[in-house]
Write a protein that binds this DNA or RNA. Structure first.
Lengths: 208, 208
DNA sequence: ATTAAGTTTAACCGGATGGTCAAAGATATA
DNA sequence: TATATCTTTGACCATCCGGTTAAACTTAAT
């Protein structure tokens, strides 16, 4: 029994590595088995097929991201504090696991259906999160704009650079060390950008 | 000769369709051949192998995006006008070809090396674009922040929602029609968000 | 020691897939 | 018409890859 648990862990770690980096189509069951140090048949003994293994890896990845996001935005803080914490947390986490986001987005691009059940299984209620943001926007900042736009703005500023990291790096010939600095700088840059961007949505602001 | 040109066009259109939607690993040479209405052997007659065909499709896609971007940001306008035009153009273009961006980002994730030569072949000088933005930030808005951050901010706000469209849609159960409205709204939303976000970077602003 | 259940392996299968080849068609030139 | 070049095809190949099978090994209970 002890050994079997061990095997399952090794499988999941290997599968995560391979799927995250190569996606569903790029991943090979043989490579996962090799990385886990086991036989390919044993891989199919634990997971009936590639799909089920992928599903498991996707669910784990998505849950990890979404739960933390929920935890932050449903906590008891001012919206701006939440945003600050979110930016810091995700720029730290994501830059260490840059492939996770791309993995999630690609997976969802191929089969968007499966997401909803993952969300429900984790007892996440995305609409609640939006409502909470909307409420705080109104009460704390007098902003009536659709919270979804705000939410997407925040995500875009944080997540996009991670997705586009290879693009940015090879486009502007930026070495790895400078890229680390760049992401570190973004914590402050994005925070101020959002804080000020939101001011444009205030009710008494002529721009809206 | 006439027919051969025709064939090449059909091949490129088919390859574009398949590669954009399924990526390198997901694409099948047979499917491309079928879509082009030709034999698989003929496909290899025009393009030695899958890699060379993919490279061509990638170069085309990237050039199309990058050239327009260059054209806008190197033209004679105020920076805010350029940003407004950029947002409108790309939200229109991208929402009709949402897969293009994801295609480019994924391709670059797999082999980032090849980008530089595409850029050079198109006579694009990314550094020039950044310098121009930096100059206009300083002269028109008294902002000294690294233009790369600003550039990435703009791209993030415009591009991320397109990448995350399936995520957003299935997460919040948004039907297609409402999603169209959402993207249409973003033209104004993002413009004001950026305009105000930038104010936070002004030299005399205590936040920076 | 026997048995039964869970775990692991080597060998194998069938279909998909990228790629090749030789020959046939088309086209232009002389 | 003969020839050379370019285009197109059907048949084929080698390999990869997801998945299966039957048997061996391990473990724990009786």
């Amino acid at each position: 029994m002890d050994n079997s648990q061990n095997t399952e862990v090794k499988i999941l770690e290997a599968a995560r590595d391979v799927f995250h980096h190569k996606g569903f189509n790029g991943a090979r069951m043989q490579e996962i088995a090799d990385l886990a140090g086991i036989n390919k048949a044993l891989l199919h003994y634990y997971y009936r097929n590639k799909e089920s293994l992928f599903e498991r890896v996707f669910n784990d990845a998505f849950s990890q991201m979404a739960c933390k996001m929920n935890e932050i935005f449903l906590s008891e803080m001012t919206l701006m504090s939440k945003i600050g914490i979110f930016i810091n947390f995700y720029l730290n986490f994501i830059s260490r696991h840059s492939y996770v986001v791309q993995f999630i987005i690609n997976a969802l691009h191929d089969k968007p259906e499966q997401l909803r059940e993952v969300i429900l299984k984790q007892n996440l209620v995305p609409e609640l999160l939006l409502k909470q943001i909307g409420k705080q926007l109104r009460e704390e900042m007098d902003i009536d704009t659709d919270p979804l736009h705000i939410y997407v703005n925040i995500l875009g500023l944080v997540v996009f650079p991670v997705l586009a990291k290879p693009l940015i790096q090879s486009m502007f010939q930026i070495p790895d060390e400078k890229m680390d600095v760049f992401f570190e700088q973004r914590k402050k840059i994005v925070t101020t950008f959002i804080a000020n961007g939101l001011k444009g949505y205030e009710k008494n602001n002529s721009l809206v």
